[in-house]
């Protein structure tokens, strides 16, 4: 007979939740390599787009009173007179050395400008995603379990409203209510926890609407599955059936949406950063575009592309933690042994 200690040994040898094995690491490496063409593509597109945009950065920097000669001199100095391919290759070369250029307006290195603002944007994205996930997932689950009840109908209408309402309007309304009228919370800046609340709620609520709809539909799909009936037939409580059996199976589409929203957030929640005057990537980008500050725009877009790809990769890795079948795709070896066991099992019975 099989003993428990042997079972523990086996558990140690094949840990149920350790997908970060060699096959997984290889996959992650492959995905990181795929970043290279993504980055090249993104920089190329943004380069061409900026070259085609009307307006002269040299003129913008020097202002309307500068003479034609001064402008020409600056253009030469910034390398703007070189052909586009030359400028592109030079940019890529500098980028490989960690140099994204110097901001035209602040005269600071672009890398420094971006890194200064990144923590703010990261914090804001995390807060928004957390708010969106908590509200969206809870409402989605309850809606699905209590399908077609008053709760479900009301939260579906709210979710529809959340998707339809523009976040800038919601932000302004919240400012009017909580900052102007009630004077409970500050309306702009990003200096401490009390400053975080309004932007996090504004963006979080809008995100929650999408998360709620996704959670509801995924859960509705899962609660009709046979294995949910099996869990109920074991005598398991409703709460544990929903949270322990249904939710893990519904997580993949939910995580996908959350990942996308988080990625968007890292790219700078442009509108909310603008409304609440938060010094993040989004605000920097808007300001730089108006100022024709090419290096900052290029660096910003590059950073957005990279963070989006990295978030996507993280989401894909999370899939493997959630669903052992996806993990098996990376590993692909152990599943094949079942045929042999079948024969053994048949012989034993």
């Amino acid at each position: 007979m099989y003993t428990y200690s042997e079972g523990k040994e086996w558990a140690a040898r094949f840990p149920g939740c350790g997908p970060l094995n060699r096959a997984m690491l290889k996959y992650i490496g492959k995905r990181l390599l795929m970043l290279v063409p993504v980055i090249l593509g993104v920089t190329l597109i943004i380069f061409i787009m900026l070259a085609l945009t009307p307006g002269d950065p040299a003129r913008q920097i020097l202002g309307g009173e500068a003479t034609e000669e001064q402008v020409e001199e600056l253009r030469e100095e910034l390398g703007l007179n070189d052909p586009l391919p030359v400028r592109y290759v030079r940019y890529i070369w500098d980028m490989l050395h960690g140099d994204l250029g110097t901001s035209y307006s602040s005269k600071q290195p672009v890398t420094k400008e971006l890194l200064e603002r990144f923590p703010t944007t990261l914090l804001l994205s995390i807060l928004c995603t957390v708010v969106g996930a908590i509200i969206g997932i809870i409402f989605g689950i309850v809606s699905a379990v209590k399908q077609y009840t008053i709760f479900d109908n009301v939260s579906r209408v709210l979710a529809l409203a959340g998707i339809s309402i523009p976040s800038f309007w919601l932000g302004l309304m919240l400012i009017i209510v909580f900052s102007v009228n009630l004077k409970w919370l500050p309306s702009s800046g990003f200096y401490g926890p009390e400053y975080w609340i309004l932007p996090a709620i504004t963006v979080g609520l809008v995100q929650a609407a999408t998360v709620m709809r996704q959670t509801r539909s995924a859960m509705l799909d899962v609660v009709r599955q046979d294995y949910i009936r099996t869990a109920k037939a074991k005598g398991q409580t409703e709460l544990k059936v929903v949270m322990g059996h249904a939710l893990p199976n519904a997580l993949i589409p939910i995580i996908t949406v959350l990942g996308m929203q988080f990625g968007h957030g890292l790219g700078g929640a442009v509108i909310s950063e603008q409304i609440f005057a938060i010094p993040g990537i989004g605000k920097l980008m808007v300001d730089s575009i108006t100022a024709r500050d090419y290096p900052v725009v290029q660096g910003g877009v590059l950073m957005i592309a990279i963070s989006f790809t990295v978030v996507n990769l993280l989401v894909d890795i999370l899939y493997a933690f959630i669903d052992p079948r996806i993990k098996a795709l990376y590993v692909g070896k152990k599943a094949k042994s079942s045929k042999k066991e079948e024969v053994k099992g048949a012989a034993a019975s």
């Binding site: 086996w10 098996a328 599943a335 079942s338 066991e341 048949a346």
Partner: peptide, 15 residues
């Protein structure tokens, strides 16, 4: 009639 070694496997690993 299934070997207890398989206890930590997931359903997709069985026929």
């Amino acid at each position: 009639g299934i070997s207890a070694e398989r206890i930590n496997d997931y359903p997709h690993q069985f026929s």
